[in-house]
Amino acid sequence: MSSTLASRPPVVADEPAFADPPTLGRRSVFQSAAGGRSVRHALAVAGRASVAIVAFLALWEVAPRAGWVDPVFLPPFSTVARTFAELVADGTLVTHTTTSLARAGAGFAIALVIAVPLGLVIGSSSRVSSYLTPFFEIFRNTAALALLPVFILLLGIGETSKVAIVVYACFFPLLLSAILGVRTVDPLLVKSARSLGIGRVALFAKVVLPSAVPTVFTGIRMAATSSVLVLLAAEMVGAKAGLGYFITYTQFNFQIPEMYAGIVAIALVGLAVNAVLVSVERRLSRWRAA
């Protein structure tokens, strides 16, 4: 990977300078609406987007009631929704969600402030990054969960090991995307800026950093996704609070609707995290073609 980057030829065709990170068509969903016609348009978009969701929930409701699945193991959606509302009202879900989010957020933030600057520095030198990138690739591709026993052995089953494994899971995607972001800056832009007599520091601030933003953001989204994932698994193994703990606890106690409510909470947390990141990303990359 690093070798292909190092020997990247100068841009010959009129190609876009940056790879477009996968945004999965979200841009079009969020396009601003103005006037009555676009309100109708927005409703149509919302309608199209929710058809599959509504169908899925209907199936979930019908299947246990019709006896296609055992309602003990898969209660109808309405039961789960009612339990969810009760758990929100009595604060149980709120407590567990905040606990999980605090851990994931802390781990993510620690990884972010260390990995991104480090990656930008490493990426600035083609020599250093060609030595280190393959090494970091090994860590990124070692599933963090496989190392959970190691973290527990070294750091115990308290908060430290859980935050630490989130840091680990986030660190390498962030680091590698920052390296890649700097390495894939269009050489022509650098050449053009240098010909304008721009110094090294200004070149980094005005050319390298802005053009690395989209690539770094791909890493940020990957890291955020895996931070939640890894944390839940860690909480399932050993914790006294958190959504992962809540799900395993309710399963052991045969509180099946509660368990599903926890799962729904996780889905909503994932959606919310992603929505926040998408909106930040859009704010930072307004200059790009829609």
Binding site: K191, K206, W287, R288
Partner: peptide
């Protein structure tokens, strides 16, 4: 490099942001 020479490239080299 210096500002006593200005360069125009084939591929424009504009900062897209």
């Amino acid at each position: 490099p210096g500002l006593d020479r200005g360069i125009v490239f084939q591929q424009y080299a504009l900062l897209p942001w």
